[in-house]
Amino acid sequence: MRHYLIPLLLLSAACSAPRDHAEMRVDLEHAQELVAKRELANAAKLLERSLESPADAGAELQRFHAAVLLVRAHVSAAFGAPFLPSARTPTGAAWNLDAEEVAPAPSQVAHCVAALCWVDRARRWYVDVRAADGADREDLLPAALDGVAPRDALAYVQLAALACHARLRFEDRVEEILAGMDALGELDRCDALLASTRVEDGLRPWIYYGVFEHWAPGDEPRAFKFAVRALETAAQAGTFGSREHERLARWIQHDSRFAFRCPTCETLADPVLFSCSVCRRPTLEFEPGPRESAK
């Protein structure tokens, strides 16, 4: 009879007890490994299931980092390898309009929406994390997350939200985020922030694009730097929108009041090239001048 006891006790513990710190720690460690291996669907499923279970009252830090990892999983999918299905076919028609059975295409938008949901959750839980500051992090977080300050994790979450809102073209929301992040005003500080928060390559062009749109109406020389960086990172990541790409190229070549030229040889900026075609000077160092004198 004792053979029944142990499974019954385990079943009881698994079903009714809140997830304790050790279990959540294991889930976080496993989920982070899955994100790193790009097994994003499995990571999201594990984290969502973990958060749906009753939580220990002292798990603020853990659930905050779980939400951050969920954001990371969904934005990595949105701007890399989406796994949530769309209701439309690759040709654009709603799939049940068609008599033929066609597999639905994965949806970038669905991942952006899901990521933004977890962004809000992480922001709210960040308040709890600050209130519970001083908890023994080693017992709560796997080693890889132990060194991540909640403030840096929150900065990552904000950047992910910026990229998603830029992708969905909710410009007001992009502006709200930019208003709270001074570091995004200067290109070098923005670069540093993206590096320190380990923003995925696929998000970067969208973040630079969002900042570009912020500066374009009032500070064109500054906007130019973000436009160039957006195009550079888009070329590396390959996840940028064609509409946004065209907007940046057209702005550099036609719509800006300025013509941007190489200070060495006066060659005009080319949105396809990221350094001067003559002297190889980086396009980021090009300087604004009056457009009417453009060659």
Binding site: L84, A94, N96, S107, A110
Partner: peptide, 18 residues
Amino acid sequence: ERMGAELVLADGTTLPAL
């Protein structure tokens, strides 16, 4: 035939337009 309207729920579930 091509507008492909869909509704995306908060968790990323999509509903097709009929």
